[in-house]
């Protein structure tokens, strides 16, 4: 049962528990996050659960402004961090909470952790980031897909045909060279995710493997949230013998 936040409670937040499950999938670009979210959605729907998916930068309120700001690269660290927070708050209040109230499962393709990591590697303090995002709901499960930088690199190039400006952290001026910047940036992000993982209790999944293998692991983590109703729950090795007369 969801319904509690990490810190402050927002005005107008519904009282009492929310009945839906909030499942978060985190991971770098190229970790297979989006593929996994799609597989998870398919599986949960086949199992009979209503699913709403959500990601970053998809709210009606400010997504256009974020795109514009990114194109111009004109916003400072604090400003951009707060713009993302506004966007997240909008999704939380107008999408995530209503869906959970209605009993749906919300699948989040990234959550506050990505936003916090991005802000911190750009100079925000961890305390500040944690408190700013303190209004976020505590998820029922956070799955963290981990892949080696070399693998992220090849998947990134495969996807975009080159390295993405933002995913290479080019705005941080770590290096003028995309290739070098990519590794420096991913290294910093991954250190930050390690810290977040300890703080927030992520379930880490080895995402260096093929999508099917990753999905199998994730299913095992998700199934218990639904108790006996999950058809794909892992078979238990030690069966309790049926009560016999």
């Amino acid at each position: 049962m969801t319904g509690r936040t990490y810190g402050t409670r927002l005005p107008g937040f519904p009282e009492g528990p929310l009945h839906g499950k909030l499942v978060v999938v985190e991971g770098a670009d190229g970790s297979g996050r989006t593929t996994e979210v799609a597989l998870l959605r398919e599986w949960l729907e086949v199992e009979g659960h209503a699913v709403v998916d959500t990601g970053l930068r998809r709210s009606d309120l400010v997504s256009g402004e974020i795109d514009k700001a990114k194109q111009g690269h004109t916003l400072g660290t604090t400003t951009l961090a707060l713009l993302y927070a506004a966007d997240f708050a909008d999704q939380l209040e107008n999408k995530i909470v209503p869906a959970l109230s209605a009993g749906s499962t919300v699948l989040a393709d990234r959550y506050i952790f990505t936003l916090m990591a991005r802000a911190v590697v750009r100079g925000a303090s961890r305390d500040w980031a944690r408190e700013v995002y303190g209004f976020a709901l505590k998820p029922d499960l956070v799955v963290f897909l981990e892949a080696r930088p070399e693998i992220l690199l090849h998947r990134s190039i495969g996807k975009y045909g080159s390295l993405d400006y933002w995913e290479s952290g080019m705005d941080m001026l770590l290096s003028r060279d995309f290739f070098e910047s990519f590794f420096l940036y991913q290294d910093r992000l991954s250190k930050e995710f390690d810290w977040l993982s300890d703080q927030y209790g992520f379930h880490r999944v080895d995402a260096n493997r093929a999508p099917e293998a990753v999905h199998g692991d994730v299913q095992q983590l998700v199934a218990p949230l639904y108790g006996a109703r999950a058809g794909a729950a892992p078979p238990t090795k030690t069966r309790r013998p049926a009560a016999s007369g």
Partner: peptide
Amino acid sequence: LLTPTTFSLLHA
């Protein structure tokens, strides 16, 4: 769409 929270964050 605006709530006290988004209103506050946008001004921030």
